[in-house]
């Protein structure tokens, strides 16, 4: 029944989102919504998905939401129009049609449902012998459905480029000489925070002087990075993989930027390097496919990469997961730096 309670919490949170006018609260509720969803994935046996949801939905999405609130300088919606009759009618009619559509679906958890009798049994029975990877989600993601994942990695790359195109030019944070400025104590002159008090992730003017936050954050960063590497390397054996590892890796840098300021974090991970690695990950992925073609196999067929097909599969999966991890981490860091590096004072 945990399943049902979690679903009810999600419905309550979603309804709360309709009513709320304070946009800061909307972002926070959205974070709660995602975290509840992550718990639901664990209950439903999708541990890899839970892992991703917790780091992406509850973590990165919330930070991005806060950043865009700071940049648009809005805290409240203009008005509440909670009750909007035409919209309500459209929604109710669509919902009723969809509920009618579910009536002949197989019951929840039914092992004989069509979805469980088509291709899934083959993955469950043969994937270990064919790829040598016990985590079925990883072997399907990286090997059986490798094309699909290549496409999705490219979408993430494209989104990173899109954000750079939209916001990357023009209003840059002044990055004169971050090292000197940081060493010189209050020498760094951050743009004055927006007076409306919304959190400005890039602006650490306040946080820098909070010793407990700073020391505690510093202590957290190495374990987060280590955990990212573990997630990347252990993705074949347990929950994890390139997508999750990339996000966790990026979150360590985001934490660093929140504590010590975006210029300091940018000094560790310069924009030019991030742009390179953003493309590098996709290139590694596509390159593994081309290597397979050159060695006489099909595109993204890893069996030809080594003398033993299973070893080839393992090698291919490790390489493309690495590519995914590099692109995801670079994309998340690029997006955060671009958002946080905007100077809210210059928006007008």
């Amino acid at each position: 029944m945990i399943n049902i309670s979690l679903l009810m919490i999600m419905v309550a949170t979603a309804l709360g989102l309709v009513w709320l006018r304070n946009l800061l609260a909307v972002v926070m509720f959205s974070g709660i919504f995602s975290l509840t969803a992550a718990s639901l994935w664990v209950v439903l046996g999708a541990v890899d998905v839970a892992f991703t949801e917790a780091s992406v939905g509850a973590g990165i999405a919330t930070v991005l939401g806060l950043a865009s609130l700071a940049l648009t300088r809005t805290e409240h919606e203009k008005r509440t129009r909670v009750f909007h009759l035409p919209a309500l009618i459209v929604v109710l009619v669509t919902g009723a049609a969809l509920i009618y559509g579910t009536l002949d679906m197989p019951g929840w958890g039914d092992p004989d449902a069509p979805i469980h009798t088509h291709v899934a049994p083959r993955y469950i029975e043969d994937s270990l012998a064919e790829t040598g990877v016990p985590n079925i989600v990883t072997s399907v993601l990286a090997s059986y459905r490798g094309f699909d994942t290549l496409g999705e990695t490219t979408v993430i790359f494209t989104a990173g480029v899109g954000v750079l195109v939209l916001l990357g030019r023009g209003r840059r944070y002044p990055v004169a000489n971050p090292r000197v400025a940081a060493g010189g104590g209050p020498g760094r002159a951050p743009a004055a925070p927006g007076s409306e008090g919304a959190a400005v992730p890039g602006d650490s003017g306040e946080m820098r002087f909070k010793a407990i936050l700073r020391v505690g954050g510093k202590l957290l960063i190495p374990p987060i990075l280590l955990f990212a590497f573990y997630t990347q390397a252990h993705g074949e054996l347990g929950p994890g993989g390139g997508f999750q590892a990339g996000v966790i890796f990026a979150s360590a840098f985001i934490l660093y930027a929140l504590l010590f300021g975006v210029p300091m974090a940018r000094a560790v991970a310069p924009a030019s390097v991030l742009r390179g690695t953003l493309a590098l990950g996709v290139l590694i992925y596509a390159g593994v496919g081309i290597a397979g073609v050159l060695l006489g196999g099909n595109y993204l067929d890893y069996s030809v990469l080594a003398h033993d097909p299973v070893h080839g599969q393992e090698l291919g999966i490790i390489l493309i997961e690495l590519g995914v991890g590099i692109t995801v981490a670079s994309a998340m860091m690029t997006v955060f730096f671009v958002f946080a590096g905007q100077d809210p004072q210059q928006v007008d």
Binding site: V49, V56, G57, I60, A120, I124, L141, G162, F243, F339
Partner: peptide, 20 residues
């Protein structure tokens, strides 16, 4: 495992498109 695979990537793609 198949829905997990599809949704895992969809979540990351979702946040990337949300950023855009």
């Amino acid at each position: 495992p198949i829905p997990s695979v599809l949704i895992l990537t969809a979540i990351v793609v979702g946040v990337a498109t949300m950023a855009v």
